[in-house]
Simulated assay, not measured.
Amino acid sequence: MPSKTKKSLEALMAYIKQSKSRRATIVRGQGEPGHRAAPARGGNHDARIGSRIDVGEIIKKAGKEYRRYKFQLNLNAQDSTLKKKAAQDSHKVYSTADLEIKGDRTEEDEEQAMRDFEEQLSKNLRE
C-alpha cells in the first residue's frame, strides 16, 4: 500500500496535470528559487493535497541548464500524518526532479518533460 507521502505526491501531480498553465510553469523552468511552483499557497488545494513543489536552483549538467524542483510537505496539511511530518521539518525535501530549461518545446516535448518530471519525483522519493 502506498504511503501517505506517495499518495500526496500522486494527488499533487494530478493537480498539476489538470492545467496547461501549471504544466507550462514547471516545464519551462519559470519561477524564483524558494517560491512555489504548485499549488498556490492558501486555498483548499494546498491543505487538501498536503504537499507542494518548490522551485529550486538552476544547475548545469553536461553543458545544459536544468531547473531543480523540490517536493515538500505542508504544515497546513489536512492529513494528520503529513502535518506531523511537516511539523518535524517543514523544509525537508522528500524528492527532487531536474528538468532541462528549453524555450522552444513542442506540445509533445512538454508532455514528455512532464512524464520525466513525474518519474523522477517518484523514483527519488525518500520518506
Rank of each mutant, 00 (worst) to 15 (best):
A37W: 01
H35K: 13
R67T: 04
M114P: 10
R36I: 06
D104A: 13
R48I: 01
V55R: 01
T25M: 04
S51R: 01
Q78A: 09
E10N: 09
I53G: 03
L82Q: 12
G63F: 08
L73Y: 03
K64M: 08
K6V: 05
K70V: 05
M1H: 08
R126G: 09
G29A: 00
T106L: 04
S19F: 11
R41S: 11
R22H: 06
K64Q: 12
M1G: 15
F71E: 06
R52S: 07
D109H: 10
D109K: 11
Y69I: 02
R52L: 06
K60V: 14
H45Y: 12
L12E: 05
K84C: 11
V55G: 01
D79Y: 03
N76L: 09
D109W: 10
A113Y: 00
Q78F: 07
A87K: 15
Q18R: 15
I49Y: 04
Q78S: 14
E111R: 14
A77H: 08
L121G: 02
S122E: 10
K85S: 14
E32W: 12
M114E: 06
Q88E: 15
R67Q: 00
S95N: 06
L99T: 06
G34H: 11
K4H: 14
Q88R: 15
L73R: 05
R68L: 10
E127C: 13
E108A: 15
E108W: 08
A38W: 04
K6S: 09
K85T: 12
S21Q: 13
E111T: 11
S3N: 06
I16S: 01
N74P: 06
A24C: 01
K60L: 03
E10M: 08
G29W: 05
R23Y: 01
S51E: 01
Q112P: 01
D89I: 14
A14C: 04
I16G: 03
G50P: 07
A24G: 02
R68W: 06
K84D: 15
K4T: 12
R68S: 11
I58L: 08
A38F: 00
R115Y: 02
N74V: 11
I59M: 03
S21T: 11
P39S: 02
K4A: 14
G42M: 10
I16A: 00
K70Y: 13
R126I: 14
E10R: 02
M114W: 10
K83N: 13
Q112S: 09
D79F: 09
G50K: 00
N44D: 14
K6F: 09
D46K: 03
E127W: 13
A14H: 07
Q30N: 07
A77E: 08
E118W: 01
Y15A: 08
R36E: 10
S95P: 05
N76W: 06
A24L: 05
A62W: 00
G103W: 11
N74Y: 06
P2A: 10
V55N: 02
R126K: 14
L75K: 13
S19C: 02
S19M: 08
A47H: 05
K20C: 03
P39W: 05
D98K: 12
F71S: 02
L12G: 05
R22G: 10
A62Y: 06
T25F: 15
A97M: 13
P2G: 04
H45V: 09
M114A: 07
G43P: 06
E107W: 13
H45R: 04
G63V: 09
A14S: 09
